[in-house]
Write a protein that binds this DNA or RNA. Structure first.
Lengths: 206, 206
DNA sequence: TCAGATAATGTACATCGTGTTGATTATTTC
DNA sequence: GAAATAATCAACACGATGTACATTATCTGA
């Protein structure tokens, strides 16, 4: 019904530009509302007409993006597929997830860096824990795992998010599909076999 | 020659106690010098006699601990051992590293959490990249890897640091040896084989 | 034990960012 | 073109910072 006032759209855009530009230069915590409004060429008071504080500003972008990830999990969680076909079943989901990272790379690159928000990083990691739970943990007998399942989840969720973060920092030199394949194979087969170096560790592995 | 004045030792101890206690309650960035000195029951001015600011305080603890890790790498880097015996060669090093985490758990638990210092986290991750480089990358022909080596390093360094961070958050319920074994095996063989679940993915893996 | 050294305190100050206010101006919508 | 409302401007109280200086308390070493 009511269209948003053009002035609001313009102001919010200026703020966004300024905020992102500052985030690429320094720590989120080191950025002040003053910094943002000066760079955006708006009055400081105007900022407070739209956001409670800088944390609220950050939160709005984060929620916006996090929604996209949750949609993917919700849509793919209850598919009853063959338990044995991990690659066939889960690779497409991973690819969809990586496409979101790719689309939102500008923001995610900044916010997942050390200059960004550690809590968003943690939230993202928890997302991958959920990802594993839906297709792995809930389907396999707990007693079958040799190591505590929490450690296995920590291992894999951090590995995945770490590769993605690195990929973003290097401005997505590979395609989402390449990254997804690398992730799934390394996860399933381990660093060496996935890289075709199995023979090197033969002596250790039997 | 000159012994440190007892007053200095006492004051620095009070500051340390207060600082750690605050870190377990809130974000490092949210902690003020006021907070610290009030909890430590010292004059605010006294703080500035010993530290430039709160960042300098943090830095001193970080460097102190980081030194311990570097010593391990320096001592174990140039050992010329059988390239094929990865487990036998590297497991003991990993165990030594994990013992440092274990000894310094109080601090590292806090500083590696989302409330802590993302830059220390990154520095720690780079340490594991170095760890891999010394015993893996430099010895194996680059062309043999199926995936970009940087991605493989990102994968493994984040996985390891992630497990350790989780382990610390849960107050080191396992021994350093158990964690080291879990890490090395998962790394070499992948999540499934390391956990004795190889059969589950047979259909995918050949 | 005592004198000299120095660490810690207390007080004050200028600076900066925050978040809020009320009055005024500029722009948009219908 | 009138009413609505977004943006501006100036001012304010508050709290944290980092520094300075005079004073007090404590430690060290002979």
């Amino acid at each position: 019904m009511s269209k948003t006032d053009r002035r609001i759209i313009r102001t919010k855009n200026e703020i966004k530009q300024a905020f992102f530009s500052l985030l690429s230069e320094k720590n989120f915590e080191a950025i002040t509302v003053r910094d943002i409004t000066e760079r955006a060429n708006i009055n400081r008071g105007t900022f407070y007409l739209h956001y409670v504080d800088k944390y609220n500003l950050l939160e709005q972008y984060e929620n916006e993006i996090f929604e996209k990830f949750n949609v993917i999990l919700d849509e793919t969680t209850n598919l009853e597929l063959d338990v044995n076909q991990f690659l066939d079943e889960r690779l497409p989901v991973m690819i969809r997830i990586l496409h979101v990272f790719y689309e939102e790379a500008d923001f995610l690159k900044l916010i997942l860096s050390p200059n960004g928000d550690p809590f968003f990083h943690e939230k993202m990691r928890q997302f991958f824990v959920r990802y594993f739970n839906t297709f792995l943990v809930n389907r396999i007998d707990k007693s079958k795992w040799r190591f505590p399942i929490e450690l296995i989840l920590a291992y894999n969720s951090n590995a995945i998010l770490g590769v993605i973060t690195y990929w973003l920092q290097r401005d997505t030199q590979q395609s989402p599909e390449e990254i997804a394949t690398m992730l799934m194979e390394t996860m399933l087969k381990g660093t060496f076999e996935a890289s075709g170096l199995r023979s090197i560790i033969e002596k250790d592995s039997e």
